[in-house]
Nucleic acid binder design. Sequence first.
RNA 1: GGGCUCAUGGCUUAGCCUGGAUAUAGCGUCGGGCUUCUAACCCGAAUGCCGGGGGUUCGAAUCCUCCUGGGCCCGCCA
Length: 568
Amino acid sequence: MLSTAAFSLGYDIKEEEVPFELSEHADLATRLAFQLTAQKKEKGGNPAQMAQEIAAAVSADSLKKADLIEKITVQGPYINIFASGKYLEKTVENVVSEKEKYGSGKKTEKILLEHTSANPNGPLHVGHIRNAILGDTLYRILKKAGYDVEAQYYVNDIGRQIAVLSWASSKYPLNRDIKPDYAIVDVYVKANEEIAKDETINEHIEALMKKVESGDKGTIESFTAAVNMAIAGITETLLLMNVKHDKFVRESQFIENGAVWNVIDRLEKTGKTKDADGALVVDLSDYGFEKTLVIRRSNKTSLYTTRDLAYHEWKAPQCDRMIDVFGADHKLISGQLRAALQLLGEKTPEVVIFEFVSLPEGSMSTRRGVFITADELLKQMMDKAYEEIEKRRPEESEGFKKEVAKMVGIGATRYDIIKVSSDKSTVFDWETALDFEKQGAPFIQYAHARAANILAKAEEDGSISAAGINAGFADYALLTEPQETAFIKRIALFEQKIEESAAGLKPHIFAIYARELADDFNQFYRYVPVLNVEDAELKKARLALTFSGKTAIANALSCLGIDAPKSM
RNA sequence: GGGCUCAUGGCUUAGCCUGGAUAUAGCGUCGGGCUUCUAACCCGAAUGCCGGGGGUUCGAAUCCUCCUGGGCCCGCCA
């Protein structure tokens, strides 16, 4: 519409090129005038004047047809657009009829998303959970955007670390009474201490690795047993955090089926490989990497990178896009991986990098036994939440308190991690971690509980029948209070925020939106009574909005992997 | 030494890609609000040379460049 108006004034701009932005001054604003002034050859155009001209050129006819727009105003160089009552009514009706599907996008591509993939040599620590939560939230947001997403955990069940583990579990007794990943890390740390003292052990380790690559069954079984124990423990922790993987892909399969050797052959055929002291390296200088990448050791065994190449080659034909979530330490290697895949003419993964979580005393290390486990953090968070609920709702049952403490503790942990942009490095400390940010997950969950409470009471007093709230429940034109319209406009942004978050692979954008949604609900809750209004029709309309708000908040929390309590 | 990345009130942080209307929000501080649907809530106040220098531009937190400081990487580890 604006482009037509601009066109009539002699400017060449396409509809989709008009820049729109959200603004505090209007529902939608555009800086079109700035852009067109710049487009003018002769300088000195006046953007403010231009905006007037464009707005004036918008014909009354076209404005009438666009019934979702109330009015268009000009403020200096800005053209402001205001939503109509019809737009608001339509939003509420959409949520009421779509319910848990509200806010879904229409994307259709298949995405393979790899995340977490922590080495199975011990429990997850607080660094890993940044990967897991970032990955899982991305998974949920991409799914909401409509994509067909499969989350994969790439299990390193074959490298040197696992050989150490296999050696360790045969040498030291495994404690069967504790969580299996803890039993594993105990012997793993002991073994590494031993190796540091006695270098000859390395010969045993190397022998084990060779046996595995040559397909020795007994050794493979010993590796697998250790890996399975660790993975069992890790999966338990992930489940507690609501993190779900569709598939666990074992690295060893690419050795067993020969895919790794096939990749090496094909790389050799590109003519970019050469021998370096018996090892096979590939030259990636065409892609800006000065150092060569080793793809086969001089003892003819494969490396992690080589197996990862085979993994990506295997994934590529199964999907439209590959996304990998990695820590900052993988920046270089993932760049080399992409380059090598390009060299082979393969599809390359999009890599989401998150910066490190370190401890005040330095970085974490499973090998050295220096880490704070995810389980420990989650337990402390749940304990803290339990204390809070105990204070606020002492009369409730033990089961209720435990359930809410879990939802809040896990939610707070997820939200604290996801709300911060992944390119900020952080230092973990208990005080900050356990300080429930006021506008974190509990804030959003609380808004949901308040809405649920209103609806529960309305069901009791018969305002809502057993059929619940469905399309055409009320006359939404009655929702005219400023807190109501502000809240509805926020709800209307849901899908756009999902798309924005999905397009940029930035879950924190959506996390912030969820908080804003709760914020606007609280305004509505504080200033607009629902149950205590006389007018039956108005009450119905407000109940419908309460329902829409609760649904939008629940859907938002679901995208963040946070449970929505009915009461807390 | 080289590469990548981050720097925004006392603390944590959004905005930066795609430059434009008084720089976002929380914590903390100070003050106010439960006879009204759950106060894990709401309202108000104070607090900013957007790390520093230079440049591009009518206009820079945003783009370019140099510098300083933190994180990560530069293995025949993963």
